Simulated assay, not measured.
Amino acid sequence: MDPDTKRDLNSLPKSLAELVGKHIVAAGMFVDEDPERAYAHAVYARRKASRLPSVREASGVAAYTVGKWQEALSDLRAARRMSGRDNFLAIMADSERGLGRPERALEIAHDPAAEQLDAADRIELRIVAAGARRDMGDTKAALAELQVPELKERRARPWVARLFYAYADVLEELGREEDAREYFARASSVDSEGVTDADERLAALEGVELVDIDIEDGIVWTDAEEPAELEEDEGPEPGPAPRGRD
């Protein structure tokens, strides 16, 4: 449990704080693997302690994961008003996109408070802004949203991989396949947690098929146009050498 949540819970009677805390922790545990279950826990916590900003934040995030955009916005706006925290601006902006309001998503993305976010939250907001531009049919503007100094980052971080991937995706839509290939490759090289399918996208651009991933040899590729079956009287021909992520 994060310090902000602990501090909020201290304002409740001990028994209620323990009950709400358990549901908040459960919501966080299940949010990725079972969003509906996480949402149920978060709703219960909100019903018991709706005046706590950390509870409203957890409820808003859970609502977002199950596509309840308006509910997510309502809870996250309340959490922001009560706590003064801005770290969930990206989720708020993306909820506006979910409601079919990309213009409002861009208003949130360009809120002055966004400049004070940490790198991960700031980049996530830029990715959402690029998505809003694409929703509006302006792919060039989407690319501009992603042209940030962090494109030079080389550390293996999930947010770096997501930035490179989003940039590559827009480049491909613009028909700039060589540049897209470069950034899909960069995304693959820093995606140590597997948050993107950059390997598959890179393979598609290079006209090869991703067959398997070997712990020692890395990614194994094959020519996508190679015949699937060999003649029965012919022995198997040597395949291509395994290639690593780079």
Rank of each mutant, 00 (worst) to 15 (best):
N10R: 13
S15K: 15
S15Y: 06
S15I: 07
A17Y: 01
E18P: 07
V20L: 00
G21R: 14
V25N: 09
M29P: 00
E33T: 15
D34Y: 08
E36L: 10
E36T: 07
V43R: 15
R46S: 12
R47S: 15
R47P: 03
A49P: 03
R51N: 15
S59E: 11
A62M: 11
A63F: 00
Y64E: 07
T65M: 10
A72T: 13
L73Q: 11
R77L: 07
A78V: 09
R81W: 08
M82D: 15
M82S: 08
M82V: 01
S83H: 12
S83D: 10
R85Y: 10
A93Q: 09
G98P: 10
L99C: 04
A105R: 14
A105W: 15
L106E: 05
I108C: 04
P112H: 13
A113Y: 01
D118P: 00
L125T: 08
A132M: 09
A132S: 14
K140V: 14
A142F: 10
E145G: 06
K152C: 01
R157L: 15
A161R: 06
D169M: 14
D169L: 15
R181W: 06
E182Y: 03
Y183K: 08
F184C: 06
R186S: 07
R186A: 12
D191R: 06
A198S: 09
R201P: 01
R201E: 12
A204E: 13
E206V: 02
G207F: 03
G207D: 05
G207W: 06
V208T: 04
L210A: 05
E216Y: 10
E216K: 14
G218S: 07
G218K: 07
I219Y: 14
T222Q: 08
D223F: 06
E231W: 09
G235L: 14
P236K: 01
P240Q: 05
A241L: 05
